[in-house]
Design a protein around this nucleic acid. Structure first.
Lengths: 354, 354
DNA sequence: TGTTAGCACTCATTTGGGTCGAGTGCTAAC
DNA sequence: GTTAGCACTCGACCCAAATGAGTGCTAACA
């Protein structure tokens, strides 16, 4: 049996309609609503074939057909036409997000929110993360008699800090010298580039502060390894409650459980991941391996931060989500983020704030 | 009409039962389940009185009675017996939360999660915040040719940082001197204690770096004013979906909307607030002014951080929530937090980590 | 040979009536 | 003041019939 042009047109009609209405659709309705120039009976025959081919299925005997996972896949890969964003939508995104790279967490939070509002699905955004991040500067700051703060400036513009407790804290000037010593060894290096010989030399030359310096190194390593958990911003979870497929409370609860588990979200965004890929990826229904999210699809993308580090954005909706619009919105936002962040990292963006 | 002892016992029975079952309760059931030594008919008469007094109400003519807001209020204020936590519960809290004050955000997140699990309601926790926070130290760190990081150590153990862009950045040594100058003026001060004369003197003595220093002060002010938005940790939102009162999707969606609005949560935790109060506060049903949360009650408390700054914890459940258990759990956790944080701030807690 | 009209059949959903039972209020007797 | 008895109310539940959207099959048509 061949998937001829007419079958494809019918399949497209079924998917379009189902995306819009969430109701199974029958032959008569297709004939009436979509001008295919053939009668319901013919459509019935074709639908019977489409079902046999696995592109659509029937919830129960006397109901219409709905697209199957395989059907959506065909649609997404071959049929879907990309949709231009309306100027209102572009404006909305521009106004809803303050592209202020100094407050990157805030920006990501706003991005999540804006996407959730625009698509009326759920949005998940992770902070950018890099394996090759380098140290720009390390500074030790005294807090009180028994504590100092270790401030680590990274070359991806983020600043991490941690408090450590040590027994004897040197005077301010002295502490600055220790800072300098540590900097001389670590500055400009990524985790793989740390020279362990230089480190142990430094340790012996600063024997008086051995305890402290060891702790500092420990902190640095843990920061570079990004052991601390990455932030995840979620928005619009409530949106899903509006869709009829989740009006069953039990189902809804299941999905919500997934959204409360940060680890799950991270796997969801990372699964089968090709970090270098610039392309938007679409994961349909059961293609993700999470039982809880079997009735959901995910449209996700990476955004660049500098040359090397990437964050992820995912938009999660019902399987019959509006893929075309979602892809457009996501493309737009990733482009915007890339350009804003890129300009910032390159220093092209003048913008000395007053 | 007087609220005699017998009426109170009946009211208590109604509330206890309704909290457990979420079903309206009738006179016969009370007579059977609770050994009050009177017949259903008598109970009926008393219930009729209780209804007239406004402590209970009838969803519809042929149903039993449910407690009214006024009824819960009476119960919470006068009738409720405080319940000891079981040792399992205490253990659970102890194990679920790693009381590590160096990672305060993490600790708060865990606290929210643990409370949500233990109570099976929703928990909201805000970071501690203080109006009288003082500066302990300020450090300027060079990032590149056009940017420096301003790191501000506060006396509540938190460290804030911000990147500012400036045109001409002095050498490292010179920058340290500027840091020192700024410190001499700001160290140990809260926002109200900043000496504006000293500031302007400093500004003129550092005329070369006027632009930079001005920006640093601006940053400091904004940090001290805590203009940046406070973190809120929420956990267990999905739990509410398990309660029959929210099995109506529309209602659930409404509530979820509230939980996605950070501002709403903050108001919720802060409303009619007495920051100095150590007491646990209970807000029943419509007593909060949020339409969305009319069917919810909130049990909330402040926890201290140092002498002066406070964070808030709120547990949100259906109006018929188990007030007694919730109060106990919350009391326990606040006590624990106060002691952990207190010990840390006072430096009594030795704990030099190895 | 592909298309279509016609028809019997299926089955989820809706509708309406009937019963059940939990609960009430009232009255009269204790 | 308490209780037994009774009529009444009304939501919940069940069941059967009606509805209608949809199908598959067959036979006629172009």
């Amino acid at each position: 049996m061949k998937l001829n042009d007419r079958k494809i047109r019918i399949l497209e009609a079924i998917i379009t309609d189902y995306i819009a209405t969430a109701e199974p659709i029958g032959s008569r309705t297709i004939a009436k609503k979509y001008d295919l120039g053939i009668s319901p009976a013919t459509i019935r025959n074709e639908m019977s074939d489409l079902e046999e081919l696995g592109f659509i299925e029937q919830p129960h005997t006397s109901a219409g057909r709905v697209p199957s996972q395989k059907g959506y896949r065909l649609y997404v890969d071959n049929l879907m036409r990309s949709k231009e964003l309306s100027s209102e939508e572009v404006d909305f995104l521009k106004n809803a997000i303050s592209f202020n790279v100094n407050r990157i967490e805030y920006m990501m939070e706003q991005t999540a929110k804006a996407l959730a509002m625009l698509t009326s699905y759920t949005t998940v955004v992770t902070e950018p993360k890099s394996r090759k991040v380098r140290i720009k500067h390390i500074q030790l700051i005294p807090i009180d008699e028994s504590e100092i703060a270790v401030v680590i400036v990274l070359d991806n513009k983020s600043i991490k800090n941690n408090i450590i407790r040590v027994r004897n804290i040197p005077e301010y000037e002295e502490l600055n010298k220790v800072s300098s010593g540590i900097n001389s060894v670590l500055k400009g290096r990524s985790i793989e580039e740390i020279d362990s010989k230089a480190v142990s030399e430094l340790l012996s030359s600063l024997a008086r502060y051995r305890d402290m310096v060891t702790k500092v190194f420990k902190t640095v390593i843990s920061v570079l390894n990004q052991e601390e958990d990455v932030h995840v911003y979620t928005s619009g979870v409530k949106n899903l409650l509006g869709f009829p497929e989740f009006s069953d409370i039990a189902k809804a609860k299941n999905i919500f459980r997934a959204f409360e588990e940060k680890d799950m979200l991270i796997t969801l965004l990372g699964e089968g991941d090709d970090t270098s890929a610039d392309k938007i990826q679409i994961i349909i229904g059961g293609e993700n391996n999470m039982e809880e999210l079997r009735d959901c699809s995910i449209v996700r993308a990476n955004y660049r931060f500098g040359n090397d580090s990437v964050g992820k954005i995912g938009i999660i909706g019902p399987t019959r989500m509006n893929y075309s619009q979602t892809v457009s919105v996501l493309t737009e936002i990733v482009k915007k983020l890339d350009s804003v962040i890129g300009a910032f990292v390159d220093g092209e963006d003048g913008g000395y704030d007053e």
